[in-house]
Design a protein around this nucleic acid. Structure first.
Lengths: 262, 262
DNA sequence: TATGCAACTTGATCTGGATCAAATGCCAGT
DNA sequence: ACTGGCATTTGATCCAGATCAAGTTGCATA
């Protein structure tokens, strides 16, 4: 059983995500973040223009819907949620963003952000100013291509999310979110089975198109079936296999729906 | 009431959307399609490399999920639907694409299409091959920027769709779709109140996250309330105002949800 | 003019998740 | 330790839309 790390373990030799002095080349996220696909020397250029590791306290906005597009942001530590405001005035959560992930991309084309981004935890953020994005995009084909990749990825993820919202049951939605968070944490070397949810039940409910009551009840059911242990926002002993099973049974073997319709 | 044109009216002076000989500069869609934001001379360059007005019969695929990214496609006439295949084997409709709209964008980054695209009607398609996209992107900043805009737009549209799926009632979903189609047809100079739905009820249901029965019943209710007349796929006398009202009442005036939460 | 079949409509019933209504737990500030 | 205000849980009830089950209608092919 994996023990939860004491949350204060400050001094690593380098690459501590809270340490603003660490540049992209030494950053332990550089395999999954913006510098991906860049050559050594190009990373050095990126390093020169990036504003590194700015601290963003819980509840502070990175940008707001309608703000002029100023920068792309890479999450270095902590967590960010992006949301829009519905006609009824409440938040529609469009995404959760963990370290190594980039937010603000939808602002690239239209020149202003289409939604807001706010810190869920004390976070550390790297910022690439607009003109630098333009310039690097002009000069480095690899960087430009990576931007296209990130945008495409976002579209593909959104389509997956659309699928979730139109076809998944409440349990499948929760399972899907937990597996996604788990996989993304694991990718950066953290535990896939024990972690803390950075977001409130309200945020989860909004993101999954459910009510908070349903989220609470489904989590309870998961707990009672031994799929995880849970106190407050802490998840332990997540049963990845069982969750995957939960998602896969939804595929009917008697499928006759594969029609070539018009 | 706008009469449906006899579908064979071949010789216009120029800009008939079925006429493959018409280049971007004379195309009546050039204000909303790819050439948007390009200078006269650049449009001429685009014109040289584009494969114009290829006919695509109903039910034929433009590309399939997993195919290598070969080209971007602009719809010149007809209609295209894009979809993915769910775990259960059935289609998840991710979008309907009308003349002037571009499909295949999500293939730009990863190098392969993330979904399939199929003609809902006899359609005419313009194609920009991959290497030309790259080249124009390298050489024309305006074109590159337009690509980013199209991708951003797609993300924003997807977020709107996510909102629809998690918060709208069946009636609101249908109203939203009808208004969207109406507005997009109007943008290209066609009637906003009288048109033919190019897609089946099944496609509508999948796109809106409903069942075909619910789609049918809601349309019936709309018909009975005098919001439209409907036979088969033909819509007439669409009451745009009433549909917009239907969408707006969903905003509660007593909103206390605007909290600055964490 | 039949025939066959997919697309669509209509009706009856069921149900997952929403809604309404109380607790209860968890801090932060005093 | 006490208080106020959230966030979360839990329970009871309700209902929009799903599911199940027949019809119809449109249209293509013989």
């Amino acid at each position: 059983m994996v023990r939860k790390q004491a949350s204060a373990a400050p001094q690593k030799k380098h690459a501590c995500p809270h340490n603003a002095a660490v540049g992209c080349s030494q950053c332990r996220l550089n395999k999954i973040c913006l510098p991906l696909a860049l050559e050594e020397e190009d990373i050095a250029r990126l390093d020169q223009t990036i504003k590194r590791g700015r601290a963003l306290p819980t509840g502070k906005h990175l940008y707001r819907e309608g703000d002029a597009f100023k920068s792309l942001y890479a999450v270095r530590s902590g967590a960010i949620k992006t949301y829009q405001i519905s006609a009824g005035g409440d938040q529609i959560i469009t995404g959760f963003h963990l370290p190594g992930e980039v937010v603000g991309l939808e602002g690239l084309g239209p020149g202003q952000y289409a939604g807001s981004a706010i810190a869920l935890d004390l976070s550390s953020i790297c910022e690439i100013p607009f003109n630098q994005v333009e310039q690097l995009g002009n000069q480095l084909p690899a960087f430009r291509h990576h931007l296209f990749s990130l945008l495409s990825r976002e579209i593909v993820d959104d389509h997956q999310h659309i699928n979730l919202l139109s076809n998944y049951t409440a349990e499948e939605r929760l399972a899907s979110l937990l597996l996604s968070l788990s996989a993304r944490l694991a990718r950066r070397g953290l535990s896939a089975t024990d972690f803390r949810l950075p977001m409130s039940r309200t945020d989860i409910a909004s993101y999954l198109g459910l009510t908070i009551e349903t989220v609470s009840r489904v989590l309870k059911r998961f707990r009672e079936s031994g799929l995880l242990t849970l106190n407050n926002r802490n998840i332990n002993d997540l049963d990845l296999c069982a969750l995957k099973d939960l998602l896969e049974v939804s595929a009917p073997s008697h499928s006759a729906t594969q029609n070539g319709d018009r």
